[in-house]
């Protein structure tokens, strides 16, 4: 029984963190159609923000505004200098963001060094839950993620801005014609997406090793989730996270980490082959 609860919580935890990581890319790729290859690097910058706050001896919570400001500003600069010229040229966007990803990795490597670093947990210790002891930070993290998703979902469904974004996604020209400032709206959407990625980096920083190349894994798992779940829907995002996270946890537990990775990759290729528009496609 204890084992089941432990696995269940681990599974929920892995799904929730994956959902958090993919959310930023789902906004940028799913809504704007910009395959941001630097997505993982924004997660990485968020994690380094947490590291900087710790090294300065400040409370962990301050890492959140720092990451949002750093990632938001960089995202704004990236959108202004490169992305906005390329919205209708997806292949060039892809290449340019890949170049920016390399630049960010190398920049962080020069500044902070290549070695692995770690961020201390601000909530050490465990909480007793359903008969087992589970790390407190993980439980809080799950609660934060679920709240965040719910809030975002309600906001996107109810708010005027949500409606404007939907209009822009479906028909940018018509949206512009009825008076929506699509240039500003897409910039805001892009900045929001990368800031969410930075936030994810802060929240995950205490649980992972922090290093300049950490972003690649996050980029790939985000991408796998979007392949499986499809673009543009929240239920697809959650289902994708569940399938990818579940497959990874289960296969890794039975065999090893490499087998888990292989399994996830095989599932993604299978989806590209059989259901190229994701699990909810009508085709």
């Amino acid at each position: 029984m204890d084992l089941v609860v432990t696995y269940g919580l681990n599974f929920a935890y892995s799904t929730a963190t994956l959902g958090l990581i993919v959310l930023g890319l789902a906004v940028v790729f799913g809504l704007l159609g910009v395959m941001n290859m630097a997505h993982g690097e924004f997660v990485m910058l968020g994690a380094y923000s947490a590291l900087m706050v710790q090294q300065a001896g400040l409370p962990f919570v301050l890492a959140i505004p720092l990451a949002v400001v750093v990632c938001g500003a960089l995202g704004w600069l990236m959108e202004w200098s490169v992305i906005r010229h390329l919205y209708r040229r997806p292949f060039d966007t892809f290449l340019a963001t890949w170049g920016i990803a390399i630049l960010m990795r190398k920049g962080v490597e020069v500044t902070f060094g290549r070695e692995y670093q770690s961020v201390d947990q601000s909530l050490p210790g465990t909480v007793s839950l359903l008969g087992i002891d589970y790390p407190a930070y993980r439980l809080v993290l799950m609660a934060v993620i679920v709240t965040m998703f719910a809030a975002l979902f309600v906001w996107y469904q109810r708010s005027n801005t949500g409606a404007r974004i939907k209009a822009m996604v479906q028909n940018p020209d018509l949206a512009a014609a009825v008076g929506i400032n699509t240039a500003r709206l897409s910039r805001a959407t892009f900045v929001t997406g990368v800031a969410i990625a930075g936030l994810a980096g802060v929240l995950l920083a205490p649980l992972v090793r922090v290093e300049p190349y950490m972003g690649l894994d996050y980029l790939l798992s985000s991408f796998f989730i979007l392949v499986v779940g499809g673009l543009g829907t929240l239920e697809g995002l959650v289902t994708g996270s569940t399938i990818i996270g579940g497959a990874d946890v289960v296969i890794s537990a039975i065999f090893d980490k490499t087998a888990g990775y292989l399994g996830v990759l095989a599932i993604s290729i299978l989806f590209l082959w059989l259901r190229p528009d994701g699990i909810f496609s009508r085709r």
Partner: peptide, 14 residues
């Protein structure tokens, strides 16, 4: 599209 590129990237990491 980006799908092929990311699959090859993932394969290289694998």
């Amino acid at each position: 599209g980006p799908y092929f590129s990311l699959i090859t990237l993932a394969l290289s990491m694998l």
